[in-house]
Nucleic acid binder design. Structure first.
Length: 496
RNA sequence: GGCGCAAUCGAAUAGUGGUUAAUUCAGCUGGCUCUCAAUCAGCAAACGGGGGUUCAAUUCCCCCUUGCGCCA
């Protein structure tokens, strides 16, 4: 029973951040492992010494944790098949390489960059597929020695058998490649560093990975990896190549399509559950109409046969929709808790810990007005700024088109007078007061409401005016009406 | 250049050898309303092209096209 347990892995290169595509691959593997009660391994592929950094490892781990994708073996966790960093496994690759050399399944190649380029150029000219010319396949010991004394450092190449290489993709069925067209590719670079395809095979085999689920950009790498498995006499795992995620223009998802880093979404104020829910739908569907899924439901429903085969396009609008759905359904308490760091960041509050109960209550009231109007917390910071600023910033377009108009000063003055003496500050009495002012001036409600909204918030759009006033308080309402009146009069003076 | 993978409304996906080809996001119209959002009602919108197989193809097969990827 133990032997049948599914083992999958996510193996990122720590060369940047955890991007959306990587996160989706991680998610699918995680869901697959959790669904079948298998093991989810995290392995760091850090053999690109130039681009790999410790910081990038941490950023990726952080991203995984934020999304709630916990791993059973890997960095910080250990496990019986470690180490889980490729650079700590160099001796293992070396060991297998010596075996391949001894078995004459691989050979040293001393060709220089120039020699390879020349050969390649010739192949291009002859319209042939690009392939190593096997110049070093049968070097004698003397020739090898001569190259070494010249100071050449060899790379190790694998001999590719000239036969069909077939594998059964769990998603796509039988995929066939012609080994004849494959080059004797490099498995070990001259510095003793394994190439991607080589390290990945040894690691997957030694870590007893049963199912390799990865982006379909790896389909063409698979035959090479199978050749390595066979040369090493290792069991070939099952493969499932999932579709890639593209930008709106159907090119590879990149920064110009918007945020591609998962942590960027945290920063802008998305809920990890919403991001997970959305990316789960990129290339996968439950087979019916449901859209909103908890992680537990995703685990329950996830299966390979519901993964589509064609590339998916990332849509910010749809993500926004998912996120606002989550925000709408959150309790005010947890919403408040999540919002606090953003308020701090925007300097709307001093300190998250030392907030007075009254202030927390105030934040909750503001949140109630904004919940359902925002797609993320950055938008809250933007839309609700006037609740947290002493001097508000009146948008110039709103000022010109709504406030700086004939008759507005008189309206605001009348309203100010009425509100400043209002005894009872609740939605109902405020509405009554506003309507009374309107009817005494013989104008429609809207003619008083719109300028007042701009005077109080600096914006033309926002929550219902009366509830806004209740939260803002009588003092501030009156004060801002006064300030708006002054501002309009100043503008009139200047233009005259 | 060689090889591989893919192809349903603008996007994500359902679905089927015979259907009015469905749902969600986005878009548009209208209701509600002080604006926006939310919400409700409605509209518009797709089987890439060509050959087969078949009584019947969006669905199965082949070719083309397009997109994406791998190889340097």
């Amino acid at each position: 029973m133990e032997d049948n347990k599914i083992r999958v892995r996510f193996a990122p290169s720590p060369t940047g951040y955890l991007h959306i595509g990587g996160a989706r691959t991680a998610l699918f593997n995680w869901l697959y492992a959790r669904h079948y009660k298998g093991t989810f391994v995290l392995r760091i592929e850090d053999t690109d010494q130039v681009r790999s950094t410790e910081k990038a490892v941490n950023v990726i781990l952080e991203g995984m944790k934020w999304l709630g994708l916990d791993w059973d073996e890997g960095p910080g966790k250990g496990g019986e098949y470690g180490p889980y960093y490729q650079m700590k496994r160099l001796h293992i690759y070396q060991e297998y390489t010596e075996k391949l050399l001894k078995d004459e399944k691989a050979y040293c190649c001393y060709c220089t960059r120039e020699e390879l380029a020349n050969s390649r150029e010739k192949q291009v000219r002859e319209n042939k597929s690009l392939k190593y010319d096997k110049h070093c396949l049968n070097l004698s010991e003397e020739e090898k020695k001569r190259y070494e004394t010249e100071g050449r450092k060899p790379v190790i190449r694998l001999k590719i058998p000239a036969k069909k290489i077939v594998f059964n993709d769990l998603l796509r069925g039988e995929v066939t490649f012609d080994g004849e067209l494959l080059s004797d590719f490099v498995i070990m670079k001259s510095g003793g560093i394994p190439t991607y395809n080589y390290a990945v095979v040894i690691d997957d085999a030694l870590m007893k990975i049963t199912d390799v689920m990865r982006g379909d950009d790896h389909i063409s790498n698979t035959p090479k990896q199978i050749v390595i498995y066979e040369a090493l006499g290792l069991d070939v795992p099952k493969f499932a190549h999932i579709p890639m995620i593209m930008g709106q223009d159907h090119s590879r998802l990149s920064k110009r399509h918007g945020a591609t880093s998962v942590m960027e979404y945290k920063k802008v104020g998305y809920m990890p559950e919403a991001v997970v829910n959305y990316i789960a739908h990129l290339g996968w569907s439950p087979g019916d109409e449901r859209e909103i899924f908890t992680k537990e439901e995703l685990i329950k429903e996830f299966s390979l046969d519901k993964i589509s085969k064609h590339a998916a396009v990332f849509s910010m609008e749809k993500l926004n929709w998912f996120n606002s759905e989550y925000l709408k359904n959150m309790s005010i308490d947890s919403l408040t808790k999540t919002l606090l760091p953003f308020l701090k960041e925007a300097n709307y509050i001093e300190n998250e810990e030392s907030l007075s109960p009254a202030k927390i209550e105030y934040i909750k009231e503001v949140l109630k007005l904004m919940q359902g109007r925002i797609k993320n917390f950055s938008q809250f910071i933007d839309y609700a700024d006037y609740f947290f600023m002493d001097k508000i910033n009146i948008e110039s377009q709103a000022f010109d088109s709504v406030l700086n108009k004939e008759g507005v000063v008189g309206i605001l003055q009348a309203l100010k007078k009425k509100l400043s003496t209002l005894k009872c500050w609740n939605e109902e009495s405020i509405e009554n007061a506003v309507r009374e002012v309107a009817s005494s001036l013989q104008i429609k409600g809207g003619q008083i409401i719109h300028p007042t909204r701009v005077a109080l918030s600096g914006k033309k759009v926002g929550p219902g005016l009366f509830e806004l006033m209740v939260v803002l308080s009588q003092n501030k309402t009156v004060k801002r009406l006064k300030e708006a009146i002054e501002k309009i009069e100043d503008a009139k003076k200047i233009s005259n």
